[in-house]
Amino acid sequence: MHTTQEKYIKRFGPLRIAEHWLNALTFILLVVTGLSQKFHNYELSQWVIMSFGGIDTARLVHRYSGIMLAVLTLQHVLVASFGVIALKWQPSMIIHKKDFQDAIANIRYYLGLQEHGASCDRFDYKQKFEYWGVVVGGMLMIGTGLALWFPTIVTHYLPGELVPVAKALHTNEALLAVMVIIIWHIYNAIFSPEVIPLDTVIFTGKISLSRMLHEHPVEYRRLSGEPPAIAEPQAIYEPGDYQVPAEEETLQDA
């Protein structure tokens, strides 16, 4: 599919790639040490905890990974806010009405009710869903995690009933996040017919022109000024939603 002559477009800088993989590592550590506590009756969990050197070490790893997640989430929010406000980055993750329309359009397309799927901008609705899941879910996990780590401090100011509430949120949200990542993210990054055997963008930071045209036609058109490679329903695209391209988002040859 990808020929050597194919052109590539830069999508992510090294900082964003590093951020993704640090997040991934932290997330895996948290899931492994956290779920083995949630499902402590299973032999696999017991093996995991034993491998970490016991429940205390597993909890220690979980808590320090939690700090790591908190740092990553916090820096992301600060960097993104600073970028958008001061450096005039395009707020490409903002959810618009078009994202819901895109989702409906794609499902209609899958069902054969319309000719083409949605044509998306820099991030499609699936990516925005995951992004906000990580940011909002991360905030929730950090808050509830701290409450579980320091229950005496929390109950010094707040009712004690909030501690089991924090636990219920933490443990359920964790399961939800794991399910979404395993099913949705892994499908879209590895098993989806569009990318199989692997979506390499998060490794190389570059996306092929053909995929760009297919998956992010709105962004491509905006960046290049060229007409869209494939026909798309014009009605859903509102150019007024989009800002000047950010520094990273320049066209580049492979």
Binding site: P151, T152, I153, T155, H156, L158, P159, G160, E161, L162, V163, P164, A168
Partner: peptide, 19 residues
């Protein structure tokens, strides 16, 4: 075990009830 636990603290245990 939890120095500094206040009167609110015991409520953080839901007393052997299934929620």
């Amino acid at each position: 075990c939890h120095p500094g636990a206040t009167a609110n603290f015991p409520d953080s245990w839901i007393s052997h009830y299934e929620p």
